[in-house]
Amino acid sequence: MDMRVKLVLLVMAGVLIGYAFWLLLRPVEIVAVHQDDDFSAVLVKSFPLTDKGKISWWMKNKDRLKERYGVPKPAPDGNFYITFWLFGDGYKEEGKYDRRCFDDMKTKVNCIEKEVVFSVNNDSRNRIHFTTYSGGDYLLTDNGEVVSYEYR
């Protein structure tokens, strides 16, 4: 193989590896939080790609979310549900079928494309559940271990 071809392939591989690291290491940006009773919608940019990364991000940032944004906001019975949505190209008018719109915004430009990436909720036993939408459902056990389970 020609030396120039090897050099081009090496540069291309380096660029791809660099891009992959950039995707994995960029910080999550919380764009907005919308509340509807015990349901919270958190709009994000640059959310982790893997199930482990999403759950790990939640574990590291749950206190910050509570302090800064009041999330979760449990119902009187203690139940809550948080959904993390990709903010994508920003707010849009309802226009298109099946956009997620937020009634707490008093403008026509109050909807996003439905790109849910992660959710966290608790159950009647106050156990924390994670849904990653790319891989599965997980439960935070009493001893702090995250285990996969099949949602029924």
Rank of each mutant, 00 (worst) to 15 (best):
K92M: 13
Y19D: 12
I112D: 07
L86M: 09
P76W: 00
K54G: 09
P27D: 06
D38I: 13
G136V: 02
K96R: 15
D103A: 14
N61L: 02
L139D: 03
D77S: 05
E150Q: 15
D123Y: 08
A20R: 12
I30F: 01
P48E: 02
D137P: 02
R64N: 13
G95V: 15
A41S: 15
D2Q: 02
T107N: 10
E150Y: 05
V11I: 07
V33Q: 09
K62D: 10
Y19G: 13
L140S: 06
H129P: 02
M105L: 15
V120K: 11
A41M: 07
K106D: 12
N79V: 02
D89L: 03
K96C: 01
D36S: 13
T132G: 04
T50R: 07
V8G: 00
D123A: 12
F47S: 07
T132F: 06
Y149D: 03
S46A: 11
V31H: 05
G95Y: 09
D123L: 12
W57D: 05
N122Y: 09
K6E: 02
I82P: 07
A20Q: 13
H129D: 00
M1R: 13
Y97F: 15
R99H: 06
L139P: 00
D51T: 05
E93R: 15
L24C: 07
S46Y: 14
E113W: 10
L65N: 06
E67W: 00
L9H: 01
V116R: 14
K92C: 05
K62Y: 09
R100F: 01
I112H: 03
F87H: 07
G95P: 01
W57N: 12
Y19L: 14
L9S: 09
M12F: 10
